[in-house]
Amino acid sequence: MTAEPSERIVARVTHDFTVSPETVFDAWLDAKLVRQWMAASIAESAPGTEMRTVSIDARVGGTFTFTDSRDEDETGPTGTYLQIDRPRRLAFTWLPEPGEHSVVTIDIEPTSTGCTLTLVHEMEPTWADYLDQTTAAWVRMANHIDRMLTPRP
């Protein structure tokens, strides 16, 4: 059973980038780029974990699968793209476990120095104890995307 929107738990992350909205948007749908920033994020949070699968069918109704090795198992989220409006909005389901239902919406607004990404992850109330951990994971991922995309001197 899916919770009503007012009952859902919400993780919200905002991150400023010094690159174009198109560049940030594409980092979410290009399998090579996703593998790079997601592997770095996973390695930071779970040392010794290896990124295994990054499969992306970047179209509305298309799916993705990201798996890594944890405790000899291969695990990770799957989802379906609900909205792809380059470079402004990306929305997808995020299913960490079968039967779970959550939705991630990413809005990207241009700024004078690049863009601002706002990520909203709406989850079932059963995930309330994981809200801080989920928010921290999205912050970590945004930071790794930034490091990957921002030219360093």
Rank of each mutant, 00 (worst) to 15 (best):
A3P: 08
E4H: 15
P5T: 09
P5W: 08
R8E: 12
R8N: 07
V10G: 06
A11P: 02
V13I: 13
F17H: 01
F17P: 02
V19Y: 01
V19R: 02
P21D: 07
T23V: 12
T23I: 10
F25Q: 03
F25P: 02
F25G: 04
D26E: 10
L29E: 05
L33T: 15
V34H: 06
R35D: 10
M38R: 08
A39W: 05
A39R: 06
A40K: 09
E44Y: 10
A46N: 14
P47T: 09
P47I: 09
T49R: 10
E50N: 05
R52V: 14
R52I: 12
T53N: 07
V54P: 01
V54M: 04
S55W: 03
S55V: 02
R59C: 06
G61T: 01
T65R: 14
T65V: 15
D68Q: 14
S69A: 14
R70Q: 14
D71Q: 13
E72C: 04
T75A: 11
R86E: 11
P87V: 08
L90K: 03
A91W: 04
E97N: 14
E97F: 15
E100N: 13
H101I: 13
S102H: 03
V103N: 05
V104Q: 02
T105E: 11
D107E: 13
D107F: 02
I108E: 05
S112D: 15
T113Q: 12
C115W: 00
L117K: 04
T118A: 10
T118H: 08
L119H: 02
V120W: 06
M123S: 00
T126A: 13
L131Q: 09
L131C: 00
D132A: 12
T135E: 08
A137W: 09
A137F: 11
V139D: 10
M141I: 13
A142E: 03
A142F: 03
H144T: 08
I145D: 01
D146H: 14
M148H: 02
M148P: 04
M148D: 01
P151D: 02
P151T: 01
